[in-house]
């Protein structure tokens, strides 16, 4: 990072602080699950379309819907919601840890001061 006299630069690919590194790792995992689901589902549908010569895709029924309608129209929005819940639960815990760290740091600082003559 090329910052005049500061080492606080933020770069999502090179997080400096430990806590930020943890957050970025979770973001990368969620984004990977998001990307694989979106691209993977469509590649799978495209693959089925090109290989299942004898059937129309709309003849393969799942949960009362053609498989591709279910996968894209029902499952993926649900998957996004689940990813959001997972991210939020982790972030809530992460922030609680950060908060506890701040309290401990303050408590230690106060006790050292008290020991000084």
């Amino acid at each position: 990072m090329d910052h005049k006299g500061t080492d606080q630069g933020i770069n999502i690919f090179r997080p400096q602080s430990g806590l930020l590194r943890g957050e970025v790792q979770v973001i990368v995992m969620i984004m990977a699950a998001w990307l694989v689901a979106v691209v993977g589902s469509q590649v799978a549908i495209w693959y089925m379309e090109t290989t299942l010569i004898e059937y129309w895709l709309s003849e393969i029924i799942f949960f009362n819907l053609p498989i591709h309608f279910w996968l894209s129209g029902q499952f993926l929005p649900l998957w996004f919601i689940l990813l959001g819940v997972a991210f939020n639960l982790w972030m809530d815990r992460h922030e609680s840890r950060k908060f506890e760290g701040t309290i401990r740091y303050r408590a230690i600082g106060r006790s050292k001061k008290e020991q000084q003559p």
Binding site: I27, I30, M31, W34, F80, G84, F87, N88
Partner: peptide, 9 residues
Amino acid sequence: TGGYILLLV
């Protein structure tokens, strides 16, 4: 819907 994941994280 997927755009909201980008927005969230």
